[in-house]
């Protein structure tokens, strides 16, 4: 039985919720608005909220002047590349642990998780030196490797929790009906596993896109993704708010959109299945 809520109470709660939500969202909204202003208007006092001369100038300038395309390309290669390689390594592992669990499966899972707890500074120097001596420094390949490894535990865990939910009885029923292994994998397991794999992919692309320890420390001009590109605005000259805003919007927009699709998976992925 649903509990009755008076209309008056509902209105009050709605108003409060909207005010708080807009306050939390405001920095993003403000960045969005500023990105369409001229530099002069961006620092005007009192600030101009909606009634200003809207211009696309900043977006044009940022994309022309600062190799934005290269940074964007690097972000895509690093986040998507590391996710796909991670999935290729993790899918068989998670599969085996979910469907053929052994005595040590739980230990292996917990151990994988523990590697995620290792603070990056604990291995910063060796990775830095290895990268320097092997020519991996400032290369997309190097970053894809690091990003694959740091996110591999999360990928395995997420997939494991999804695969775990596929009922084993279905497989037995298929086998009884005489399905071959190939048919079993192709027609039964794959369709059931695709949603889980897709959400894992989505969440991992987001995490890799926003990662800002290794990307800042292991890249310079060639392989720097958007995180490092934005960091270059930390020591600016002259008026730059509008351009900073435009660059920021271009860096976060793809992930904001992807992120909104993956809200539900976020909880499962980031709590390693502890909260669903």
């Amino acid at each position: 039985m649903a509990r009755k809520v008076t209309t008056k109470r509902r209105i009050t709660v709605t108003v409060i919720a909207w005010i708080i939500a807009l306050l939390i969202f405001f920095p993003i909204l403000w960045t969005f608005l500023t990105s369409f202003k001229t530099e002069g208007e961006a620092v005007a006092t009192p600030p101009h909220f909606f009634f200003f001369h809207w211009t696309l100038e900043n977006y044009l300038e940022v994309s022309e002047r600062s190799d934005y395309v290269l940074y964007f390309f690097n972000s895509v290669v690093i986040s998507v590349g590391s996710t796909i390689i991670g999935l290729i390594i993790a899918i068989p592992a998670a599969w085996a642990m979910a469907f053929v669990p052994g005595k040590r499966t739980k230990d292996v899972l917990m151990w994988m998780l523990s590697t995620k707890m290792l603070p990056p500074v604990g291995v910063l120097i060796p990775i830095y030196l290895i990268f320097k001596n092997t020519g991996l420094m400032d290369t997309r390949t190097g970053l894809v490797i690091v990003m694959t490894l740091i996110n591999l535990p999360i990928i395995v865990w997420m997939l494991y929790t999804y695969f775990k939910e596929i009922p084993g009885e279905i497989l037995e029923a298929c086998r009884m009906d005489g399905a071959t292994l190939k048919e079993e994998v192709l027609y039964i397991l794959t369709p059931m596993a695709v949603p889980g794999i897709a959400s894992t992919l989505l969440l991992n692309v987001i995490l890799a896109w926003n990662e800002a320890f290794w990307t800042l420390n292991l890249t310079a001009a060639n392989a720097a993704p958007l995180t490092a590109f934005i960091a270059s605005y930390s020591s600016p000259e002259g008026l730059f708010y509008a351009k900073l805003s435009a660059a920021s919007m271009m860096a976060i927009a793809p992930i904001l959109i992807l992120g909104w699709f993956s809200q539900k998976q976020l909880v499962r992925g980031l709590t390693f299945g502890a909260v669903k």
């Binding site: 708080i20 939500a21 807009l22 939390i24 969202f25 920095p27 993003i28 960045t31 987001i206 896109w209 926003n210 800002a212 800042l216 958007l226 995180t227 490092a228 934005i230 960091a231 930390s234 920021s248 860096a251 976060i252 992930i255 904001l256 992807l258 992120g259 909104w260 809200q263 976020l266």
Partner: peptide, 13 residues
Amino acid sequence: ILVIAPFFVMPTV
């Protein structure tokens, strides 16, 4: 959606 949005913003931004 509005409340969750900041989580998707990269730290440098």
